[in-house]
Design a protein around this nucleic acid. Sequence first.
DNA 1: ACGCCCTCCTGTTGGC
DNA 2: TGCCAACAGGAGGGCG
Length: 271
Amino acid sequence: MPELPEVETTRRGLLRHVRGRRIQSVLVHEQRLRWPVTPELPTLLSGQLVRAIERRAKYLLLRMPNGTLIVHLGMSGNLRVVRGAQALLPHDHIELQLDSGAALRFNDPRRFGCFLYTTEAPRHHKLLKDLAPEPLTRRFDGEYLHRVTRGRRVAIKSLLLNGRLVTGVGNIYASEALFRARLRPQRQARSLTRAHCTRLVSAIRAVLKSAIRAGGTTLRDYVSAEGAPGYFKQKLYVYERAKLPCRRCRTPVRQLTQGQRSTYYCPQCQR
DNA sequence: ACGCCCTCCTGTTGGC
DNA sequence: TGCCAACAGGAGGGCG
């Protein structure tokens, strides 16, 4: 579910309610996530101040004096701030009770998300150390994308989902960025010229920024930390629009499967 | 090194 | 109405 815009929207929603708060207690209702939640989590977190909430790719980092909580929302996860004694919902797996009286709840039906605590610098953590540059920084530019696509026979759409080469882009925004860059998703990555790469980087940055402004994309169940859906779905050009007219040229949008994931594109606009 | 495929899970949807 | 297969926003890991 959540790609960079949804994770960033969650981060921003958490800031006002969680940053600067102390964790009073921790309840783990389900420890079987993508990786098992350590039984020590309550001991490790209780009493700690949440100093900062950062994002690296699709990971949220809650920085505390003694370490960092690394959270990934997987396909179906969300982090919500609830006031007081709200009833527990199905799949509310972890709750951090704050000194404000509010609580942070991690809900994840499919349990592909993770909730890990580390005392090492997050950038050295196994899950983060090999990630590509942040897509909204200057390190991610046309020259970079051109360099990492050299010699790669994989379809450009699939390459966009490889977090070691490009981060933050998931299945929705990969199709959307390629539409905006007017590039066919099936093209071998190595066929992209430097100019194509510049165009594609611009398209990725634009679609991610635009989606952040819209509060992310809610297809089915994504909600922000404050429970609000994102409304970028209204601005999607191709994703989940198979057979519907392209919003630019009216040609029916096509759907195909690449690497067991659905891809959408306009055969007229994208070459 | 690269690229493909499987896997982890639950919930929803669409076809028969 | 019921059943069942297909599919869903991620990404690590294993294999050839």
